[in-house]
Structures are given as structure tokens and as C-alpha cells.
Computed example of a mutant assay.
Amino acid sequence: MPELPEVQSMIDTLIDDGCLNHKIIGVETIMPKLFKNSDFKEFENHIINEKIENISRIGKYLIFHISHKKVFVVHLRMEGKLFYDDADFPYNKRHTLVRIIFNNKKELRYNDTRRFGTFTIYNENDYINSKEISKLALDPLDENFNWKYLKNNISKSSRHIKTLLLDQTNVAGIGNIYADEILHASNINPLKQGNKITDKEFKTISDNATKILQLAVKNKGTTISTYFFKREKKGEFQNFLKVHTKKDKPCTKCKTTIEKIKVNGRGTYFCPKCQNE
């Protein structure tokens, strides 16, 4: 968390709330270690007096395109959130790690209770080749993503399909929640090896990955514990979950009791009847 739908929902909210095209007049941080390919002063110099012209996404990374063909990239990791607030709106001074201050009496605030997030700076012509971005696969919402692409990336691996879907070099944007949902919708056991997946199953996984992530974006992501796409605004896709977090509850397809196991250290929910292969 956050996964692709949560990241996209934050981007949509920031843009809809008017975060673009305001001059940056200040930057403050209480945690300089967040800045990974520059020190804080270099980051400040990179964005001060510029404007955020657009926000895009690659996988789970937020790409802030600013004036003069500059970019800064944010990865939220486990608990990161971005809020566009009035400058006088109260905020948690312990967990608000970065404040980007605009000339319209607004601020872009980065909140992270776990403090694992990262900020990096680039130019428009080099961020795509950065070590973080260049290794990412296509995500299921990319127009070029399809079952053949997915098969090419994972069909030679003997690792479990659940683990392969979480590997961002195979397919980007999918985390624990959506991997469980995709595999349940596809009737595929999370322990099945990648090299045992058939073409028909690759097609099903690919189709369900796209459909489920689209629906999750439409519902502003999944709030199970701490995710908010906006101040005090939770996602709603948790209301559509079929298997994730449903241990000991009946499967929506066959009424068999949902089980929880560990797959490569990750809590994994599945139906032992529907997903028996």
C-alpha cells in the first residue's frame, strides 16, 4: 500500500483540487533522508520558483512535471500520502515530512508515518532512464499491456504466480491486495508456478488485472487501514473485495471458506475450491 489505484486516485485528486500551475515559493522538510539522488538543498533549488504543470504515474511512482522541463518523482512506499491543503489548515507536525509551499496560500504536504517514502529529481529527458523507473514493467492500465506481454515476462519462472505478480519488473502497479483479487477472479491458485500457467490462464489474468484495477481507480482505491486519497476521504474499493481480508468467510462464488496462507512472506487470501489448481 498504496498500489496503482491508490496512487492514481491521489493524482486525480491533486489535479482536480487545483494543484497545478502555481509558483512554488518555499520547501520545508523535517527528514532530509527522504531525498535520494540529491540533498535537500539541491531539491529545493530544483523546484523553487517553478510550477507543477502536470502529474503522471509510472507503476506506483508519482511523476511531477514542473516548469523548465524539470521533474521530481515521489514513491509513497508503505504509508505515504500527499495532500493539497490550505496553508492555514492544521497538520500533524510529526508525520508531515515535506511541505511544498505555493504562492496561492496552498501547500502540497507529504505525510508518512513509516517514513519509507522517497523523493528524487530529474530532467524530463532523463527520468525515464533512472534506476527506479527504467526497471519497471508495463502496468495493466497501459494500452500496450496484454496477456502475451505478461506471458513473456513470467512464463519461464518456477516462482509462485502470486510472487510473480508482485514483482514490479514483471508487471507494475500490482500489490498484495490486487494480486489476491486478480487470482481469485481468475480461479488460479496463488502457489501455482509461473511456468505452469497456460495461455488461457494468462489471458484471464491479464483481463482481470485490467478490469479490477480500473474498477479500483473508479472507486478511489482501497482503504483497509490508513489510506486516504484526500483529507479524511477513504477509498471505497474495499466494499468490492471478494477474497482479500476475507479469511473464514464464505467465497462469493462457491461458499467455501476463504483461507489465508503465506506466499513468500506475504499474507495471501484464496478459495481452496475455486483456486484449487
Rank of each mutant, 00 (worst) to 15 (best):
P2R: 06
S9D: 03
S9M: 03
K23W: 02
E28P: 04
E28H: 09
P32A: 09
N37T: 06
F40N: 02
N45T: 10
N49A: 11
N49Q: 11
K51Y: 15
N54M: 12
S56P: 05
L62T: 07
L62Q: 15
L62M: 10
H65R: 13
H65D: 10
K69R: 14
K69P: 08
F72M: 05
V73P: 01
H75L: 10
K81Q: 15
F83I: 08
D86K: 10
D88Q: 14
D88L: 15
P90C: 07
Y91G: 04
N92F: 08
R99E: 14
N103P: 06
N104Q: 11
K106G: 04
D112H: 04
T113Y: 10
T118Q: 12
I121C: 02
Y122L: 06
D142R: 08
N146I: 01
W147S: 12
S155G: 03
S155W: 07
K156A: 13
H160Y: 15
I161N: 00
T163D: 10
L164Y: 00
D167H: 00
D167C: 00
G175S: 05
E181G: 02
E181Y: 02
S186P: 07
N189K: 15
K200F: 13
F202N: 01
F202C: 02
N208Q: 13
S225N: 14
T226S: 15
Y227I: 05
R231M: 14
R231H: 12
R231E: 13
Q238I: 08
N239Y: 12
T245M: 15
D248N: 15
K249V: 06
T257V: 14
T257Q: 10
N264I: 07
G265Q: 04
K273R: 13
C274S: 02
Q275L: 02
N276G: 06
N276M: 09
